[in-house]
């Protein structure tokens, strides 16, 4: 455990160093404060935004949207991905379609999604989902394919019926990588937030950032971006910790 304390120490020191450097650069005037406000200014802005502009409310709204979209995406991607990876014709049928959609630029699909889903919550969730599902489903399919065939053959030779191999072998065997891939795609989901929340916007961090950008309030933009960063960092750490807890058997 001394190792992990070391890591935290190094991580904190590096972050602090970066912040100090940033502060120095901003104060030196080498970069106009209009483009790069000092971290102290950003933190002060962050504070007033929490106190006066309901930043925490917006953060809560965004978090909720991201998680709803992500959970829908995951709930669909896991079974579909497992089927794609295990049943050859399903994979062959879906893979080209999904690969195609995966490369479509989400921002260009916004008007289309408004036609389908209107300007309410569903469009925002849909856009976030769009950025997550197609990535995750392919990762899941790959994870399933990467399960060693020995595991399946072991199951077959103790008499496991086909579908039980999905639940008793594929799923547990891929679970650790699945959780990792979910953690990564959850991060991607956040990057689509700006795209989703500037559509018929009324709340959320994406809306706050975009509005601040519209009025050239760089400290506010930074504060919004940093809020997303902090949420991302915390989420990531929590999932990593859970991963270590759930998959202790991986430790040699």
């Amino acid at each position: 455990m001394a190792g992990s304390r070391h890591r935290i120490l190094i991580g904190t020191a590096a972050s602090l160093g970066l912040i100090l450097l940033w502060e120095a650069v901003s104060r030196s005037g080498a970069v106009s404060a209009r483009f790069l406000p000092a971290p102290s200014v950003v933190v002060a802005t962050l504070w007033t935004m929490i106190a006066e502009r309901g930043l925490l409310y917006h953060a809560g709204v965004s978090t909720l949207r991201v998680w709803v979209a992500f959970l829908i995406a995951a709930a669909m991607a896991v079974p579909i991905g497992i089927l794609m990876g295990s049943v050859r014709w399903i994979g062959a049928a879906l893979e080209p379609v999904i690969d195609f959609i995966r490369y479509l630029p989400v921002p260009a699909l916004v008007p289309l999604s408004i036609i389908w889903f209107g300007v309410g919550e569903s469009t925002k969730i849909f856009l976030l989902w769009l950025g997550t599902f197609f990535q995750l489903v392919l990762l899941v399919a790959d994870d399933v394919r990467r399960v060693p065939h020995e595991f399946h053959e072991t199951a077959m030779t103790v008499g496991a019926p086909g579908w039980r191999r999905l639940t008793d072998v594929s799923l547990p065997a891929m679970l650790p990588t699945l959780v990792d891939n979910m953690r990564i795609t959850l991060g991607w989901c956040w990057t689509y937030l700006i795209i989703a929340e500037i559509v018929a916007a009324d709340s959320g961090l994406g809306f706050v950032i975009w509005q601040a950008r519209r009025f050239f309030q760089t400290p506010e933009v930074m504060a919004g971006v940093i809020t997303i960063g902090i949420i991302g960092l915390l989420t990531d750490q929590v999932i990593r910790a859970a991963h270590r807890r759930w998959f202790r058997y991986l430790v040699r």
Partner: peptide, 19 residues
């Protein structure tokens, strides 16, 4: 016929489920 438990396999690697 298809695999069943009358014929058990022991592989060189991945012989036990880690979970």
């Amino acid at each position: 016929g298809p695999p069943d438990r009358r014929r058990g396999m022991v592989f060189q690697s991945y012989s036990a489920f880690p979970w």
